[in-house]
Simulated assay, not measured.
Amino acid sequence: VIAEAYLKGIRGFDAEKAYEAMKTTMMQDARGLKAYKKYGYIPYNVGVDESVTITLEYAYDDWCVAQMAKALGKTEDAEFFLKRSEAYAHLFDKETGFMRGKSIDGKWRTPFDPKRSDHRENTDYTEGNAWQHSWFVPHNVKGLISLFGGNEPFLNHLEKLFTESSEITGDNVSADISGLIGQYAHGNEPSHHIAYMFNEAGQPKKTQYWVDRILQTQYNTTPNGLSGNEDCGQMSAWYIWSAMGLYPMNPASGEYQFGRPLFDKVTIHLPNGKTFTIIAKNVSKDNKYVKSVMLNGKAYNQWYISHDDLLKGGELVFEMTDK
């Protein structure tokens, strides 16, 4: 949160002191960090539950600390934390395509069932399973793709997440696994960036397809209109961003991925007094695919827009189609 705020130009706080707190937090010994520092990941047999999820989240935290360090001119720190943010690679099992629990001596935890959930005890995953937690590398999707061996195997596995059966196994299944499309669990926040990852592997149409499915099936206007706990407003936030056609897949990167806009026109009133307008031509229930993108009247060929460009104000035009 601090890194994202600072990198998006929010000032008025002591950045040096805030950075010191971030660095101190990530260099302490509590909550599995001692093992994380020693092995580069948290082994499942050091007495820390949910070791895979925590390792992946620490890797992202490290990346955020590195960005803040870089912005403050602390080159040595930036390099240290950036290197450590590759911790996810230790837990990736190329044979199965999942992030798995690993022991102190580097052996995978067996038996392994990617659909199994054990709520908060004797588990490698927090309130979920391997299918849901193996995608948490928002800071380096390209790095994750290369662990799979390229776009194709990555895309096949990612598509399978949404098309696999929704059976969750185990006798102490987490109640937090809800809003299922295949094994994708929209009712819990760790899944919320996943549909946007197709963009990074050259298949934006898949992002558009699955974001549309989530928008259409996981929200409605009844008392039970959200598929999971609204924790800090995140279920609604996902909807609002996605309905605009944007999403902060990696918030601290300052980039908003393109998805599938729902409205023909959305106007964002920016704090600097400017406005940013998103127009979706020919948008409808069937026309969920993006045919072309224009930014301020010029053809635009990236699948994201930066926070800085958005703050300049202007007009983003999606032309929509049913193919």
Rank of each mutant, 00 (worst) to 15 (best):
L7D: 00
K37Y: 10
F13V: 00
K37R: 14
Q28S: 15
K37M: 09
E20D: 09
F13R: 00
T25C: 11
I10D: 07
Y19E: 05
F13C: 03
R31M: 14
K34N: 05
Y19D: 05
Q28W: 12
K23P: 03
F13P: 00
K8A: 02
G9W: 02
A5G: 09
L33A: 09
M27A: 06
D29M: 12
T24D: 08
Y19P: 00
I10Y: 11
K23R: 15
L7I: 01
D29I: 13
A15C: 11
Y19Q: 05
D14W: 05
K17C: 01
G32E: 07
K37P: 03
A5S: 07
K23N: 05
R11C: 04
E4N: 15
T24K: 14
R31V: 13
Q28C: 12
M22C: 14
R11W: 00
M26L: 15
A5L: 11
Q28P: 04
K17S: 11
G12P: 02
G12F: 01
K23Y: 05
E4F: 02
A15N: 06
E16V: 08
L33Y: 14
T25P: 01
L7G: 01
K37G: 08
M26E: 10
R11V: 06
M27E: 15
Q28F: 09
A30E: 08
Y6I: 04
T24S: 11
E16G: 09
R11D: 15
